[in-house]
Computed example of a mutant assay.
Amino acid sequence: MLSLFIVVVFFISILIGVVIGHYKIFPFYYLYKYKNFIAVKLKKRVKNEKIGTFNESPLDIFFTESLPTTQLRYNAITDENSLENILDKMSIPSQYFFNAYKNIELVSFDQNGEICKLVYKVNDLTQEAFFYSNGKKSNDVILTIPGSGENHSYDIVTNNIRTYHNTFGTPSALLEESTHFVLIKPNEDYLSIHNNEYKLSYNALYKTLLNKGSSYSVKYLIDAMALVKYCKTNEQKVILNGLSQGAEACLYVSLQAEPYMTIMSSGYSIFNSILDYGSFDQIIISNIRNVYSPEYIKSMIKQQSTKYILTYGKEEQCIYGYEAKNNLTQNYYKDLQNVYFYSHEYAHIMPVKELNKMIKEFYV
């Protein structure tokens, strides 16, 4: 009898787990949150064991990040010249960023399966931008810009729960009939720079580009602008969508590209103009806080037809938790008719149910 009881309890537990995971009901959010916390701790331990070891080349020390199992564009790096060639091609002078959109010249767009390639020029430089696509053809386009963390692009477009972006998924109101592009950042997923075992160290990549007068952030932000320009040229209605760093990126792209709608989940606070907390993996562009001051951003948004939706979580530990409870940024923008705010009860997530309602209300 005891063994039968254990078997029954086991299968009931599995059934309950499936229901919680599928419908994302209590306590799904908390289980997901602590699962990610444990995974990050284990990953850091493995990485620390790797750092400081040499094999056959000094290059080995710079390849420390997890290599994705998705299709890869680049062959394995075996010498300094091949690595330098890739880095040079992605180096865009930081000063190009502030007037990038109007200086973008579109060259070509190709799609091979789920991977899209956009070739463009900005000032005197020819660049290549890459995106994953859900394969749908529509006049309504969503461009999701991933937040910080590695190898999230493919998981976002396939709605894989492994990425924190999909705690509750992408708003279904956006995806029902729309084309969904997900930006592939340099050294992420398909664009991983690798040695067949590991990806190039993020810190090495960020610092190298900064010391070349460029910025990792500049590259992927201008890539995103180029796709918005391509879609608008084809008379497609574009919605930008981002969580965390991706939300901040959506703001900077929108101020120049002026899409139809921009959804920013936990990614922007006017307080960041006073004190900007973050590490190398956050947006770093020389002089951006002076140029894109709260006053300038407000004046630009006021001139636009773009609808902005900003959300914050009351359980967040950083400035966005403060925003959710005290409405710092909301109060600053309260006189703008095209900016909307929502505070939810969770932490660093995209509040999908509420966003679905807002999107359907505002989307014309």
Rank of each mutant, 00 (worst) to 15 (best):
D60F: 04
L275F: 08
L118I: 10
Y260G: 02
E315V: 07
L59W: 05
H165P: 06
Y340G: 08
F362W: 04
I274Y: 06
K50C: 02
F130L: 05
K353Q: 05
Y216P: 13
N195G: 01
S343K: 00
I38G: 03
R162V: 14
Q304I: 00
K43Q: 15
K102E: 15
L251P: 12
V253S: 09
F362S: 03
D335C: 03
L87C: 15
I25V: 15
P58C: 03
Y268C: 10
K117G: 05
N203E: 07
Y363A: 06
V9F: 14
F62Y: 15
Y340D: 09
H165F: 03
L15R: 07
G278D: 10
Y190K: 12
A249Q: 11
K44F: 05
Y346R: 12
R45K: 13
Q330P: 11
K212F: 01
V107Y: 12
Y120D: 12
C318S: 11
E84A: 09
P146S: 01
N187F: 04
E80C: 08
S148C: 01
N290L: 07
N327K: 11
H152R: 06
L72F: 06
K89E: 08
T78M: 02
G321M: 08
H152P: 01
F341V: 06
K121G: 08
T170N: 02
N338H: 10
L125I: 15
P93G: 04
N160F: 05
K43Y: 07
P68Q: 02
L2V: 10
L118R: 08
V46A: 09
H152N: 10
Y220H: 14
K307Y: 00
F97E: 13
H165T: 13
Y230C: 04
K44P: 13
V253C: 14
E56Q: 12
Y30K: 11
M225G: 07
G17C: 08
N287E: 10
N75Y: 04
H348S: 10
A100G: 15
A257K: 08
I92A: 07
K232T: 15
I319G: 05
E323L: 09
V40Q: 11
E80V: 15
S192W: 02
P68A: 02
A249C: 12
V291D: 00
E323Q: 03
N123V: 15
A173P: 00
K50G: 02
G147A: 05
G267I: 11
H194D: 09
V157M: 02
Q245A: 13
P294Y: 00
